[in-house]
Amino acid sequence: MSLAIDIRRLRFRYGGGPWVLDIPELTLERGERAFLFGPSGSGKTTLLGVLAGVLEANEGEVTVLGEDLASLSSAQRDAFRAQHIGYVFQMFNLIPYLSVLDNIALPARMDPARRARLDGAGVKETAALLADHLQIGDLLKKPVTELSVGQQQRVAACRALIGAPELIVADEPTSSLDFDRREAFLELLFQECERAGATLVFVSHDRTLEGMFSRRISLPDVNKAVL
């Protein structure tokens, strides 16, 4: 099976600052559900930025879904991200002036390739279907400012999943949820990743959830830059 993520001798730092990432090797198979953990400040968000092609590695090779990111221009990396990656933030995931539906539909409207993968269904229908799956089907018309944090995270998950990207990256999406809601959220996320055949990289500093994952990665163990 080909690799979803293949990192070799990656080094990254912000501007002229200290090294934040120094990862000799890190790979992830396609279809895996990986739990990436480490204390705050250990570079988890930074690593996701590199994987998503928003940040550019200073050294080494980062191959995502078979694509060598260093060989792409920054515009190509943006297009690659739009097409193949779904991203969920820890919080404040939603654009305040868009409706729930428009927030979910955003990636499909941003990128023609992602829109093309809706399997013939319209953007709205697909968004509504995903919302149903994540049990927020009745919220589509609401302004996002009226949603609870849990509802917001589900909307963000729908947005990450629309157009079936191969890689879902979630940066501590449950840390602002109550404990019993975390599991429910994860169950739904897993289910949708499975349906879409997507690889999931799930970041957290809270290890109570790690039992639900097929692969556990401790960032401090793979990242030499963390002292």
Partner: peptide
């Protein structure tokens, strides 16, 4: 800034 980060995440380039 938050909004810009979200747009970047869903694939919006700086342009």
């Amino acid at each position: 800034r938050r909004e810009m980060a979200i747009l970047r995440a869903v694939g919006a380039g700086p342009n």
